[in-house]
Design a protein around this nucleic acid. Structure first.
Length: 419
RNA sequence: GUGGAUGUAGCUCAGCUGGUGGUAGCACCUGGUUGUGGCCCAGGAGGUCGUGGGUUCGAGUCCCAUCAUUCACCCCA
């Protein structure tokens, strides 16, 4: 067998997929509590959409996109751009002044895979469009925190403000001046960064750079009046909702479109991939994409990373996929059991049956492995007398069942088993 | 794109300075119980030792290349 999944692409097998379902189920429940609606989006978009939304100069656009060059289309590397495209295309701002939307699905980035990072990965993406209220920012973070808490994960929240087009240029100037003075002390990456994206120097992991940057001018000290007001409003909101967070004035987001509030949910349990979720406000982006002048904020949760955390936390999920196992011995019994199983399934029961002609012992073993709470044993002798045996696997008690016509037998079994 | 580590059964792994691939564990199949699961016992099946070259009388073992996996950097969820 030489055909294998592509590097960075992964199958999610039974046993793990249950965790995904639980994660997604809980997320949907919580998104509903906060009055979010689902939107399903295509995976392919015009390449232009991403270069405009994410930024020409970002790593994602420069070297990580799966693009069909001849067709000018790209497999989405993130969800926000697609979601905003749909929002603009369908005039959703007219239908509701404030839209709360979420979407769940795969994203694609051509990066070198490592722990918690794949080339096809999955995100749960949440966006609120049409509100500048700092309470929305607080609510978003509170919702993320609630989801993580209800998953039983302990994750910390860090927040920062990146200001806006009014205040960021001023900050940039003083940061550049500061970096110029220490250019020689910075690592090679940061020397490059101080030209291409000076803000990034602030969150370099190199200890020497960190030290240099400690005294750097802070974004938070350069906020304009509106941004400062907004920022303190967000903090008040978080306090009111009892969300624990810390300020990280060095936190910078990788995408160009962020303004004001940015935040990350951080864990120490995933190696180099600290962020399980991240997002922020992007007040100018919709307009920039040709839409109405509407503010927005959103964040994405990395599902692979959450599942890894869940796997570390609990070894195994109990899988109970079956209500009844039908064990048949002989042709007559198998013939009868085959139809009976179908009748039970039609009535909503989860039924497993072995059709390989195994010994009763083999069938019992299968039933045990499947975790079937009951086994209906159809033996030739009993069948001849119109009877069968129902075994409770936990108590090992068995009772005789009188087989009437199929419909009646189904009813009897459902009644006994649902007790 | 850069650096390190690792490729032996479905999975986890032994395999010494080169000398016939492991009674290894888990899982699987059969039997011990003419028709009763988990535990136990016995047996069985399962391999191009990632791939291709090279060195050698002889390579799982040494060398080169290549592919894959993985961790980290860059970057990011």
């Amino acid at each position: 067998m030489n055909i294998k999944a592509l590097n960075g692409f992964k199958d999610i097998l039974p046993g793990e997929v249950e965790l995904w379902q639980r994660l997604e189920g809980l997320a949907r429940d919580i998104f509903a509590r906060f009055n979010f609606s689902e939107i399903r989006l295509p995976i392919l978009e015009k390449t232009d959409l991403f270069t405009r939304a994410i930024g020409e100069a970002t790593d994602i656009v420069e070297k990580e996109m799966y693009t069909f060059v001849d067709k000018q289309v790209t497999m989405r590397p993130e969800a926000t751009a697609s979601l905003l495209r749909a929002y603009i295309e369908h005039g959703l701002h007219v239908q509701k002044p404030v839209q709360r939307l979420f979407t769940i699905g795969p994203m694609f980035r051509h990066e070198r895979p490592q722990k918690g990072r794949l080339r096809q990965f999955h995100q749960m993406d949440v966006e609120v469009l049409g509100s500048t209220s700092p309470r929305i920012d607080a609510e978003m973070m509170a919702m993320g925190a609630m989801l993580l808490a209800e998953m039983g994960l302990s994750v910390s929240l860090e927040m920062n403000s990146l200001g806006c087009p009014v205040c960021r240029p001023g900050f940039r100037v003083s940061l550049l001046a500061f970096l110029d003075d220490r250019h020689q002390a910075l690592c090679d990456d940061c020397k490059r960064r101080s030209v291409t994206n000076p803000l990034r120097v602030l969150d370099c992991k190199n200890p020497r750079c960190r030290e240099q940057v400690l005294e750097a001018p802070s974004l938070l000290d350069h906020l304009c009046g509106d941004c400062a007001d907004h920022f303190s409003g967000v903090q008040k909101g978080l306090e009111q909702l009892g969300v624990r967070y810390s300020l990280n004035k060095f936190m910078v987001r990788g995408l160009d479109y962020y303004t004001r509030t940015t935040f990350e949910f951080i864990t120490g349990d995933l190696g180099a991939q600290a962020a399980v979720g991240a997002g922020g406000r992007y007040d100018g982006l919709i307009e920039q994409l040709g839409g109405p002048s509407v503010p927005g904020i959103g964040f994405a949760l990395g599902m692979e990373r959450l599942v890894l955390l869940l796997q570390q936390k609990e070894a195994e999920l109990p899988v109970s996929g079956v209500d009844l196992f039908v064990a048949a011995l002989g042709t007559q019994s198998t013939h009868f059991g085959f139809a009976l199983a179908h009748g039970l399934r039609t009535s909503g029961m989860r039924v497993a049956m072995d059709l390989e002609g195994r010994s009763l012992k083999g069938q019992m073993k299968l039933a045990g492995r499947l975790g079937a709470p009951h086994v209906l044993i159809l033996g030739e002798n009993e069948l001849a007398e119109g009877k069968a045996v129902l075994r409770n696997m936990a108590t090992q008690q068995q009772q005789e069942i009188v087989l009437q016509d199929e419909a009646a037998t189904v009813q009897i079994l459902i009644k006994i088993i649902s007790l």
